[in-house]
Write a protein that binds this DNA or RNA. Structure first.
Length: 493
RNA sequence: GGUUCCUUGGCCGAGUGGCUAGGCAACGGUCUGCAAAACCGUGUACGGCGGUUCGAAUCCGCCAGGAACCUCCA
């Protein structure tokens, strides 16, 4: 299959033409959420970024197996802590079973991803469901000599690995710098070096999540699940590995080293990383306490939000920035996205209602537009550029509607297909229907009644009454529009 | 402290050497009884100081400010 798609590969730090291992097929693994809290805006970034890539690859004709995991075990709160992991901690606080916590937040994540129109991955494996695979991976790493057992835990020997292999390529780190820069942490006597990381961790007596293993009752190290599960579902070497930039080091670096140690060769060919969402210039993260949950965005309940923002506003907001740039949250920016999207959708509706002419005055522009949109996407998924081109097209569409330009049937078909494919299939946007006047037919009838009275007042040129009805309704949150043969209205709040 | 990266018009956000993205806001116009909405039109910005070049937002250096990672994080 021929394509011109270029992706920025963090490994090489440049854009590379994408070539899959097996022609026509793509294996993609993306680090999913750790389900110990509500899904927030930060979670939406990689989900939407890789949803865009998933959709675009499929559009190019690839059969894609997209694996995105759920981390429900093993992430230590601190690599050298008392052995209690985040999920267990939360479970005790809430007096819930750990798996109950996992289920609650997994459901929350799924619900929000569905609202954002993020397609479900092909496989969504859970770490807790792949303990056996992880134990087998630990065994393979021990056999290769790059890990050692210490007091029931198993650690990856980073320095030994680095002597014989490349380590730190992804994050641009040098082993010497790492050695000289690591902080001294408590409780590292089990490890030979502070750089070493656990691939199996012995559970303390109070630790709830634990599994038997040849070394101890415990749980897998926090980087291991991705190595084990990607190999299981995509093979030991696969095409694309994605995730947030904050995972580059140490998570992905550890994955690369583990996979090489376990399997003898590199895991992923293309490492793709999305950048962060920032709030007042600072990363939005649960641990920083500045994360706004997606529920809060949709309901507008967070103190920092001026209004609710719909899932499509948020999706469009993210698509208007390149995935490798930080994207700063602000009410102003979100509102700009909301209005822009509304305008784009209005043009799509127009596009499907305009009539074709015998002549076309826009043939060249249609051809250009088509080319430009795909070139933008091929250039490392440059969705903001593609959107800019689509907005250029909006002007053209409106000019056709106004009769300033003409379009032939053939051109119209191309244009309709282009917008349909880009907006709905590749960008994954959908038109959100406003809930009709709070779902009340009665209220709807009352508003119609008032506006019909206003029509009568207008017919009598009783502007005072006419304006009073309109102004009062506007105050109540209705947007009144006069049309050629009457009126239309919608509830804005 | 180390590593990496960023600084674009009122706001957001593309753009890697010449061809002045786009959105929102603002302003002007069309439409309207007046509005609203919609549509059309207008904006020569690139942190500071040097350097390279015929030519730099774009390359190099220095300075200033900011961020991410180095600990769990999307």
């Amino acid at each position: 299959m021929e394509n011109q798609l270029q992706l920025y590969n963090t490994l090489s730090r440049k854009k590379e033409v994408f070539k899959p291992i097996v022609p026509g097929r793509v294996g993609m693994y993306v680090c999913g959420p750790t389900v110990y809290g509500k899904a927030h805006l930060g979670h939406a970034r990689p989900a939407i970024t890789f949803d865009l890539l998933f959709r675009y690859l499929q559009h190019l004709g690839y059969k894609v197996r997209y694996v995105r995991n759920i981390t429900d075990v093993g992430h230590l709160a601190n690599d050298a802590d008392e052995g209690e992991d985040k999920i267990a901690k939360k479970a005790k606080l809430d007096e819930l079973e750990p798996m109950e916590v996992v289920q609650i937040y997994t459901n929350d994540y799924h619900k929000n991803m569905t609202l954002l129109n993020v397609l479900p991955p092909s496989i969504e494996p859970r770490a807790s469901g792949h303990i056996i695979e992880q134990i087998e991976t630990v065994k393979k790493i021990l056999a290769s000599g790059y890990a050692y057992e210490s007091k029931g835990s198993v650690y990856f020997d980073v320095e030994k690995f680095a002597m014989e292999n490349q380590y730190g390529q992804l994050s641009g780190r040098k082993i010497e710098d790492l050695i000289s820069n690591t902080r001294e942490l408590d409780g590292q006597d089990e490890k030979h070096s502070s750089l070493d990381f656990a691939i199996w961790k012995k559970a303390q007596p109070e630790h709830i999540m634990r599994w038997p293993s040849p070394w101890s009752d415990g749980f897998p190290g926090w980087h291991l699940e991705c190595t084990a599960m990607s190999a299981r579902y995509l093979g030991e070497t696969f095409d694309i590995h994605g995730g947030g930039m904050d995972l580059m080091f140490p998570h992905h670096e550890a994955e690369i080293a583990q996979s090489k140690a376990a399997n003898g060769h590199d895991s992923a060919n293309y490492w793709v990383h999305n950048n962060m969402i920032t709030l007042n210039g600072q990363k939005m993260g649960k641990s920083l306490g500045n994360a706004i949950s997606l529920d809060e965005f949709f309901a507008g309940t967070h103190p920092l939000l001026d209004q609710p923002y719909s899932p499509m506003t948020i999706r469009f907001f993210m698509l208007q920035a390149h995935y490798r740039s930080t994207l700063d949250f602000s009410n102003e920016a979100l509102q700009a996205a909301e209005k822009g999207l509304k305008r784009l959708f209005a043009a799509v509706k127009t596009l499907f209602s305009i009539e074709a002419s015998a002549q076309s005055t826009v043939t060249e522009r249609v051809v250009e537009l088509h080319k430009n949109c795909f070139e933008a996407m091929d250039d490392d998924l440059n969705s903001p550029i593609a959107i800019a081109h689509l907005f250029d097209g909006v002007k053209m569409i409106n000019s056709i509607k106004d009769g300033k330009e003409q379009i032939s049937k053939a051109d119209l078909d191309i244009l309709r297909k282009l917008y349909y494919v880009f907006i709905f299939e590749i960008f994954g946007l959908y038109m959100e229907e406003k809930a009709e006047a709070g779902n009340s037919e009665t209220l709807s009838n009352v508003v119609d009644l008032l506006l019909n009275l206003r029509m009568e007042a207008k017919a009598n040129k009783d502007w005072a009454t006419s304006d009073k009805i309109r102004n009062e309704l506007t105050k109540l949150g209705f947007e009144i529009k006069d049309t050629k043969d009457g009126f239309s209205w919608e509830l804005k709040k």
